[in-house]
Design a protein around this nucleic acid. Structure first.
Lengths: 249, 249
DNA sequence: TCCTTCGTTGCACATTATGCAACAGTGATT
DNA sequence: AATCACTGTTGCATAATGTGCAACGAAGGA
């Protein structure tokens, strides 16, 4: 592992939260300001960071150039987009997400924002806990057993709410049910007062390549009302799967 | 400057062009594969790269998380978006861009794609040469003289076409005309057969904070026809400037 | 089964990253 | 105008980390 590279990556992550001065960066990294400055100048040389008139550091344009390239590499996103929009409309303007598995976590690839005032917080690119979200359960449920075991072994069962699944045994039961019924739910397990249902997008060989979810705050629909959206969710994921299969061949 | 960080950043840039194996990355960096592997693993640990089942490396989800954050830091983009869309529609479906200055270059922040079959190539996040594009000229023209001199001194007058401005003296004349008329053009200087006009977006103190351009291939409109779009372009930039001023206060 | 290719690990040392001290620049205050 | 405080930058020496080598293990193909 490369220490100075790790430091530089921490700089980028921190700048994602807002601009910083050289001193702030150095303090945050717990290094001398000269060290921080050299890392920042290297990042600046390739447009990963930029400086403004007041010597404040910000994320640079290379990030959005590469961000666009990284998203473009998830081709399923383009295929799914119209279906996600339709699903959001059909479910009364709820938030709809597309997620994929990456390195022990679920990653939001696309999102249709809720039209309601009360919303859940999420952002494209941010991870979602495999054990606490509907998309996470869907992505893990259909993995080949050896792979699934390895993923479960790496999960830290962090309790987001009092309802979050607390251990591997409980999680395995939920995954078995997910496989059986073909969809999963998050019943206020990731966030109090928010319920989600999720279902898989499959490739032509039947492998799960992504997951779609509909998220609804309690004040808009109770849990049973969210479950009633499952048929529409399944229709959407089936349509995406068909389009994805058609595109891949 | 940090050598190992530079290497890692080159890896990210290269992965933006497509997936790579460890050996390919090592060859490209001209380092031993162990060195490349350690950098890749460090990048992987923070989700900057991901590996697929066949050990191929791809850009990771952190890039689109930070890409989104970097774009969100350019707040003018949100303000400009509806105006860009209207301008594109009013000009018969031409390509419309919003760009800002960063580190010696113009950077595309937003783009409305042309509805025509014949198009120019561009992408959000990619740089555009200050001397060869309408947005570049607009961004440099109104800089304070000392700052403008420093920027011009750093320009390498690369000839994109036979019509590209060849030296600082020629560029200064064009900048003076840009200031005088309040807009700039790129008459097949960046790309053969493509003409653009660009105009400034200003903040409430009158400083140029961004530039908007309309780009049209010759086969759709000759140069005079593109110039005829300037009134609409100016109306759009004035509307964006007004909204930006309203938002900043 | 054997061979080839590719990714990984451990070790020693070469090279680079680091921090210190001093300096330069800027803005605010007297 | 002069001084002070703060922040960014440069040069130098050395400490520490990055690097490449050799060996190994895993996977796929013949």
């Amino acid at each position: 592992m490369s220490q100075s590279l790790s430091r530089a990556l921490q700089i980028l992550i921190e700048l994602g939260e807002g601009e910083r001065s050289l001193d702030q960066v150095a303090a945050s990294l717990e290094v001398h300001k000269t060290t921080a400055m050299r890392l920042l100048h290297t990042l600046e040389a390739d447009r990963f960071v930029r400086r403004d008139d007041r010597q404040r550091y910000h994320l640079g344009s290379r990030l959005f150039a590469l961000g666009g390239a990284a998203l473009a590499q998830h081709a399923i996103r383009d295929v799914a987009q119209p279906h996600l929009a339709r699903l959001a409309a059909e479910t009364g303007g709820q938030a709809v997400h597309l997620a994929a598995y990456e390195n022990g976590t679920a990653i939001y690839l696309a999102k249709v924002e809720s039209t309601h005032a009360v919303r859940m917080y999420s952002r494209v690119g941010l991870p979602a806990a495999l054990h606490a979200t509907a998309v996470g359960k869907v992505l893990v449920a259909d993995l080949p057993p050896g792979e699934r075991d390895a993923v479960i072994a790496g999960i830290e069962f962090r309790p987001f709410t009092s309802r979050t699944i607390a251990d591997a045994a409980g999680y395995r039961e939920v995954l078995a049910r997910t496989r059986e019924q073909g969809w999963a739910e998050d019943a206020a397990e990731h966030e109090d007062f928010i319920n989600c249902v999720g279902a898989p997008v499959r490739d032509e060989a039947g492998r799960v390549v992504a997951a779609v979810s509909v998220s609804v705050p309690d004040v808009i629909l109770p849990r049973e009302g969210v479950r009633a959206l499952v048929p529409q969710l399944l229709a959407a994921t089936e349509a995406i799967s068909a389009d994805w299969a058609g595109r891949s061949s």
